[in-house]
Amino acid sequence: MRSLITVFEPRAFASRIESDDELGEIPIGSGDRIGLLHNTKANGDLVLDQIELLLSRDTSITTVRVTKPTASMAAPGDVLAAFEGLSVVFTAMADCGSCTSWSCHDAVSLEHLGIPSVLVVSTAFKPLAKSIVATLGMPNVRMLVLEHPVGGLQPAAVASRVEAAYPAFRTRLRFSGGITG
């Protein structure tokens, strides 16, 4: 029989409880104001442009676009405050380690403020995002998942990434009034 000794457990954390479920659908009405939070990542602005375009095909919207100072830190309070009262905020682009982690924080912070949020994340970093939102106690944050990579693509390819992912995600949106397309 192998000789055993008693030691203390080195790990201080428990397994995270991740979820495939997501928060409820988001109602969007004609004339609603939509938030677009750009974290400065490459092509994140183009991703948000395309989301803005696709949403505007469904209904008449106004967008509030904010670029936070850096992708590798949380959105400051004044950035989050700019989204107060909006129907939903899309954060882009979560396609690396630190930016995904902090974008998760931003999405959860928005939800805590009562502002629905959608984390736009690439396929390669969705597992990290799922883990981080679970550690933050909100495992069901909504995610719009784009094929990785997003950085380094030509604009048309970025638009294609968003268009490919949008139809499935659109079922999470509930449009009312003013449908234009």
Binding site: R33, T40, K41, A42, N43, G44, D45, E52, L53, L55, S56, I61, T62, T63, V64, R65, V66, T67, K68, P69, T70, A71, A75, P76, D78, V79, A82, G151, G152
Partner: peptide
């Protein structure tokens, strides 16, 4: 590289209506 953010800048805020000209607010 495109999308790099060496400036550690302040937040920028603008409000637009898709299809309409001009920003409503600039940060």
């Amino acid at each position: 590289p495109a999308g790099s953010a060496p400036g550690h800048g302040h937040a920028t805020i603008r409000e637009t209506s898709p299809g309409a000209a001009g920003d409503v607010q600039s940060g």
